[in-house]
Deep mutational scan, measured.
Amino acid sequence: AVTGSQTALLLRAFEKDRFPGIAAREELARETGLPESRIQIWFQNRR
């Protein structure tokens, strides 16, 4: 499950760019500790 702090970080990124590229998703994966594929799905679901 995604924690509150991970969600906050993802929401901030989403406000800046609703369609992040692979580099941005990989950076978010490093920052959150989540797999990049999970980040991609999160953005798809959020849109």
Rank of each mutant, 00 (worst) to 15 (best):
G4E: 15
L10D: 02
I41M: 13
P20N: 00
G21T: 13
L34M: 06
E27I: 12
A24H: 04
R38S: 13
S5L: 14
R18I: 05
L10V: 00
R30I: 08
D17F: 05
S5N: 11
L28A: 01
Q6M: 10
G4W: 08
F43R: 00
L34W: 09
F43E: 03
Q40R: 14
R47A: 05
F19S: 06
L10W: 02
A13I: 04
E15F: 10
G33K: 05
Q40F: 12
E31L: 15
L28S: 00
F14N: 00
P35N: 07
L9Y: 07
R47N: 11
A13M: 07
T32E: 00
W42K: 00
L28Y: 03
G21D: 14
E36W: 05
R12G: 06
A8K: 11
L9Q: 09
L34N: 00
T32Y: 01
Q40E: 15
E27H: 09
F14D: 02
S37R: 11
Q44G: 05
R30D: 04
R18Q: 13
A29F: 03
T3K: 06
S37E: 13
F19M: 06
R18F: 04
L34T: 02
A29M: 07
Q6N: 06
L10F: 01
P20E: 01
A23H: 10
G21S: 14
E27P: 01
T7Y: 15
R12S: 10
A29E: 03
I22P: 14
E27K: 13
L11V: 12
P35T: 14
G4S: 14
G4L: 14
A13T: 03
Q44R: 08
R12C: 11
T7W: 15
A8P: 02
A8G: 06
R47F: 04
N45E: 15
Q40S: 10
L28V: 02
E31D: 07
A8Y: 08
G33H: 04
R12M: 11
I39P: 00
W42D: 03
P35L: 08
G33W: 02
R25T: 09
P35G: 05
A23N: 09
E15K: 09
R46P: 02
A23D: 10
V2F: 15
E15D: 08
F43P: 03
F43V: 02
L28P: 00
R47W: 06
I41Q: 14
E31M: 14
E15P: 00
G21P: 08
R47T: 06
R12I: 12
G4V: 14
R46E: 12
Q40C: 13
F14M: 03
L34E: 02
L34I: 08
E26L: 14
E15V: 07
I41F: 08
R12Q: 12
E31G: 04
S5H: 13
F14A: 01
E15I: 09
T3N: 11
E26I: 12
R46L: 11
N45W: 13
F14Q: 01
R18K: 12
P20V: 03
F19K: 04
E31A: 14
L11Q: 11
L11D: 07
R30P: 00
Q44T: 07
L34V: 04
T7Q: 14
K16F: 08
I22C: 08
L9N: 04
S5D: 13
T3L: 07
T32Q: 00
T7L: 15
A1H: 12
A24T: 09
G4N: 14
E36Q: 09
E26G: 06
T7F: 15
A24S: 07
W42E: 03
E26H: 11
E26N: 11
G4F: 07
Q40I: 13
N45A: 10
R47M: 07
F43Y: 04
E36H: 06
I41H: 11
P20W: 03
L10H: 01
E26D: 06
A1P: 12
N45Y: 08
A24Y: 05
R12L: 12
A8Q: 11
V2Q: 05
I22A: 13
P35Y: 03
W42M: 00
T32F: 02
E36Y: 04
L34G: 01
T3Y: 05
T3Q: 06
L9M: 11
A24V: 11
G33L: 03
Q40N: 14
N45H: 11
L10M: 04
L11G: 04
R46A: 14
A1R: 12
R38D: 14
P35I: 04
L11F: 04
E26V: 09
F19E: 05
T32M: 04
L9T: 11
R38E: 15
A23R: 11
Q40T: 09
R30A: 08
I22F: 11
